[in-house]
Design a protein around this nucleic acid. Structure first.
Length: 923
RNA sequence: GAGGAAGUGGCGGAAUUGGCAGACGCGCAUGACUUAGGAUCAUGUCUCUUUGAGGUGAGGGUUCGAGUCCCUCCUUCCUCACCA
């Protein structure tokens, strides 16, 4: 009697065996092609989320596939273990970040193991260990030596909630991306990485197979714009005011200037009469958060400084204003305002009654454009007017030098020394220091005003354990004298590194996590780099994915890869371009959302007070089953806050207050019921603990087994899109694996096969191989599994018909199980062993696709009339055009449509790739 | 406001990239086996006025032929956002 498929009995068994036999150890082997598959490492928050499974198990399947295809595959895993949550846990739960983090890592390692993934744990790297952050510090020093890391004063994002500064990338809509709390701008001295030096190179995605959307997001984030810089001088003091503009062709239309309220010159140029008003405005804007300043269609407020500047192009006197629509963080923090040709300047001019002068005249207007008639700025093409010698220049939609008018004006500015061509970026330098404890120490010291790097031989600067975690706006390390006081004169830096720095190079640490003489072993880097396929979420588009590119380029430029390049040459590989980018191919998975759930349908009876019922009895009944004559309130629980139910019925919401001693009847929950057991409606939305729609992978594994969960995640979604969770669908993959198991357990047929049927099943097998290959290649895991299900159905039918003999059965099964192995590694291994084949299935060669075997002998000739399919005729696969057209014209459908007439034309399309040929008859 | 992605049965989703729309799965229906069925097996399942015809958010276009390409519009999601 054959055994049933019991996942739990086999999964842990094989996981242990794989580990014991070091099945997934990956070692440098110059004789084999390498494949570095990487999936984003988790933050050890405590529990593995279903999202981790969704990101990682398909990546694992693909890595396994590459391995079976003969690649030497590296697929490592680790933890991005520094960061705020550990410190928050320390504050709120009084547990040390080390303890909290390491306990979580322990737990998550076990959860990761339960996936049955081919992670090489020997290569695990944890960013919060001294062995790791020693090298983060070491990199910081190298960056400092090469002028990439510098200490500077800048207006930075300060989070009151977190009591730390944040990088621009960590601020979304003026709020901290983690807590959603507002962020204010503060002038502070901090450590920066000069990422802007690499802006242009980071815009170049040559040779990178990354999603277009990520490239676009990075491009927009870097925000390169082309234009000119010009310097205005104040009328009296002669203070230079530098401005940047993308429209130098409108310089003659500048009728006023605007400084950002934070601009240095504001205090100096303001006249005595205006000082009170200006100070008040500056104070007011300083109190506004970024959010206030970003409200759409905000009224254009501002104040006149009392000062005037001279426009260098025409020596005109223009008033200088301050306004919060000019941002200190972009360009020079000062603008020339051209109200006729810029919407914001136009609104400001109208609001404050400032002059507007047209200097670009659009062509083809009946009446020339003049100021009084304008209701908005004109920012289109035209001819320069009122611009002295530049009059008549043609301005187009093009930007920069490609616009003839701009080109001419820039030449003139440069020739006369009044300005110059300029490129501006939205990207700011990367603010790297954090006023927090749980991060890599910055290996710097101070003696008076001098900055002194910690000598390499003293690295790592270790984090002390006995610190207070009370957030005060300064790093907890500033209260730890033994840490910061090196001697009487030397003081350590007490800020720590942004965690994104640690995760910018983890792909390198995996190569040799135990190396203590260098961040990574040159020989390993020479073999494995770059990462061939990187998978993870798109939310890192302008953070991690930009930082790690920057990091890679800096390492290349300061010679960190030189030894690796030499090792490559020694082994006959060309290092050119290998160290320019960290990851060649990037794919983003979508997000698994919480599933939709109906709320309980309830009947409530009690007293109606006003519009609300005070219920004494609430009964859950079958959907829409309202007993005749029921007098109370009823409907689906759309929402529940404490004991108030919001009932939805036919689009109307009614409210029911469940009294404390009310009788609650929920037939499907035994025992006494209470109000908290009533289920409310859940919409499709992101999973979160507070919404109560999270899915726990451990519970799923306990119920269905890891293989079923893996296959469900790969089968039920378009991986790159994600979608709502629906556990009902898990029955599909479960049934599939069950069927494969049963076919294997039934053993080889004892009846002889039928030659034609056997040829057919082998043909279908090879068609399946082709589609599984394509699915894995293109991250279309759902189609790769669907095709295997389909083949299983065919095989099952053929076996039922007793059409397959033992030899073919064995050959087919050997390939079916190998196809299955990347997706469901445990069951594949078990069946492989039960069929008596050699351990391990994961070391077997991938089934070889044979186009000859896959080819159909007969195909369906599709007869179309005017492009509509009307009939099919079975024909030989290699049918010639003449014969196909002859058959098509003779078909019933053609005869009916033609009714004796001759067709206008016929089009023959041969079957492509073994597909069906077609004849289209135009009548 | 700028940029991007997407819209296909009751549901998740396919469609070899311009060539039989709805693969595969869920659900549902009918039947078989069964004391029982949330098990298993079989069959069916886009719609309609069914010798046929129509159908991929709406409308138009290109083409022998359009889910796929082009234009206009609608809807949803994502990113950035007073960027000078």
């Amino acid at each position: 009697m054959s055994e049933q498929y019991q996942p739990h009995a086999i999964e842990v068994k094989w996981q242990r065996k794989w580990e014991a036999t070091e099945l997934y150890r990956s070692q440098v082997d110059w004789d084999k092609p390498k494949h570095y598959a990487l999936t984003m490492l988790p933050y050890p928050s405590g529990d593995l989320h279903i999202g981790h499974w969704f990101a990682m198990t398909p990546s694992d399947a693909r890595a396994r596939w590459m391995r079976m295809r003969g690649y030497n595959v590296l697929f490592p895993m680790g933890f991005d273990a520094f960061g705020l949550p550990a410190e928050q846990a320390a504050i709120s739960r009084n547990i040390h970040p080390w303890k909290w983090t390491y306990a979580n890592i322990e737990r998550m390692r076990e959860q990761l193991r339960s996936m049955g993934a081919m992670f090489d744990w020997e290569r695990e790297a944890i960013s919060c260990t001294p062995e790791y952050y020693k090298w983060s510090e070491w990199f910081f020093k190298r960056f400092y030596e090469h002028g990439v890391a510098y200490r500077g004063s800048a207006l930075v994002n300060w989070s009151e909630t977190l009591q730390t500064v944040l990088a621009n990338e960590q601020v979304i809509d003026g709020k901290d991306e983690r807590t959603g709390q507002p962020v204010v701008q503060k002038m502070m001295e901090q450590w920066f990485f000069a990422i802007t030096k690499y802006a242009d190179e980071l815009l170049d995605f040559e040779g990178m197979d990354w999603p277009e959307s990520i490239k676009i997001m990075q491009t927009n984030w870097i925000g390169r714009s082309e234009g000119a810089r010009a310097t205005f001088h104040t009328e009296t003091g002669g203070h230079p005011i530098e401005i940047y503009t993308t429209r130098p062709d409108t310089l003659w239309g500048a009728t006023f200037m605007v400084l950002a309220p934070e601009h240095d010159l504001v205090a100096r140029v303001t006249s005595d009469e205006q000082r009170a008003a200006v100070d008040a405005y500056v104070r007011q804007t300083a109190q506004e958060t970024e959010i206030d300043r970003m409200v759409e269609d905000r009224e254009k407020t501002g104040v006149f400084t009392g000062a005037y500047a001279i426009n260098p192009v025409n020596d005109e006197k223009v008033p200088i204003w301050i306004a919060d629509y000019v941002m200190i963080t972009y360009g020079t923090g000062a603008i020339m305002a051209v109200p006729a040709h810029d919407q914001r300047d136009f609104k400001f001019a109208r609001a404050h009654d400032l002059p507007i002068r047209v200097v670009i005249q659009p062509e083809g207007l009946a009446e020339p454009l003049t100021e009084p008639a304008m209701t908005e700025a004109y920012d289109g093409p035209g001819v320069m007017v009122n611009s002295d010698a530049m009059d008549g220049s043609v301005s187009t939609w093009r930007k920069g030098r490609k616009n003839p008018a701009i080109n001419r004006v820039i030449d003139w500015l440069e020739a006369t020394g009044k300005g110059e061509e300029a490129v501006n970026y939205r990207l700011r330098d990367w603010l790297i220091s954090r006023q927090r404890y749980w991060g890599g120490p910055i290996p710097m010291m101070y003696a008076d005003d001098q900055i002194i790097p910690v000598p390499d031989e003293h690295l790592p600067v270790e984090l002390p354990e006995d610190v207070d975690f009370v957030p005060t706006g300064r790093s907890p390390l500033t209260y730890h004298e033994p840490f910061f006081k090196v001697d009487e004169t030397l003081r350590r830096e007490t800020d720590t590194l942004d965690t994104f720095m640690c995760s910018s190079w983890y792909q390198l640490r995996y190569l040799s996590p135990n190396c203590d003489t260098a961040p990574f072993a040159a020989e390993e880097a020479a073999y494995w780099l770059p990462v061939d396929v990187y998978t993870g979420g798109a939310e890192h588009a302008v953070m991690h994915l930009l930082y790690t590119r920057f990091f890679t380029k800096v390492l290349r430029d300061i010679g960190i890869y030189d030894d690796a390049a030499a090792a490559m040459r020694k082994n006959g590989r060309d290092p050119i371009g290998v160290f320019d980018e960290p990851m060649t191919v990037l794919r983003n998975q979508g997000q698994v959302l919480g599933g939709e759930r109906q709320g309980d349908f309830v009947l409530c009876s009690g007293r109606v007070v006003g519009e609300r019922m005070q219920a004494e009895r609430v009964e859950v009944v079958d959907w829409n089953e309202v007993p005749a004559g029921f007098e109370g309130f009823f409907g689906e629980i759309g929402h529940r806050t404490e004991n108030i139910l919001h009932l939805n019925m036919a689009g109307v919401t009614s409210f029911v207050e469940v009294l404390p001693d009310a009788e609650i009847v929920i037939p499907h929950i035994p025992g006494e019921n209470n109000v908290n057991q009533l289920q409310h409606h859940l919409d499709i939305q992101r999973m979160s603990k507070s919404k109560g729609n999270v899915v726990n992978p451990d519970e799923l594994v306990a119920e269905y087994g890891a293989d079923v969960v893996r296959c469900y995640l790969m089968f039920n979604f378009d991986w790159q899109k994600g979608g709502p969770w629906n556990e009902n669908n898990i029955k599909g993959p479960q049934g599939w694996l069950n069927d494969v198991w049963k076919i294997a357990e039934a053993g080889a047929p004892s009846t002889p096969g039928d030659a034609a049927a056997e040829r057919d099943i082998v043909r279908k097998l090879h068609q399946t191989i082709a589609i599984v290959n394509r699915g894995l290649e293109e991250f279309s895991f759902n189609t790769a599994i669907a095709e295997q299900m389909k083949f299983k159905n065919s095989l099952k039918a053929a076996l039922r018909a007793q059409a397959i003999g033992a030899d073919v059965w064995r050959d087919v099964m050997s390939q079916v199980i190998r196809l299955l192995a990347p997706f469901a590694p445990h069951i594949a291994e078990e069946i492989w062993a039960r069929l008596g084949w050699e351990y391990s299935v994961h070391q077997q060669p991938w089934p070889q696709y044979d186009a000859d075997k896959a080819r159909e002998e007969t195909v369906d000739l599709v007869v179309m009339i005017n492009g509509k399919p009307r009939e099919t005729i079975a024909v030989a696969a290699d049918i010639a055009r003449e014969r196909a057209e002859e058959l098509a014209l003779a078909s019933g459908a053609a005869q009916r449509s033609l009714a004796g007439n001759t067709p206008k034309r016929t089009i023959f399309v041969p079957g492509r790739n073994g597909g069906d040929p077609m004849v289209n008859i135009v009548v």
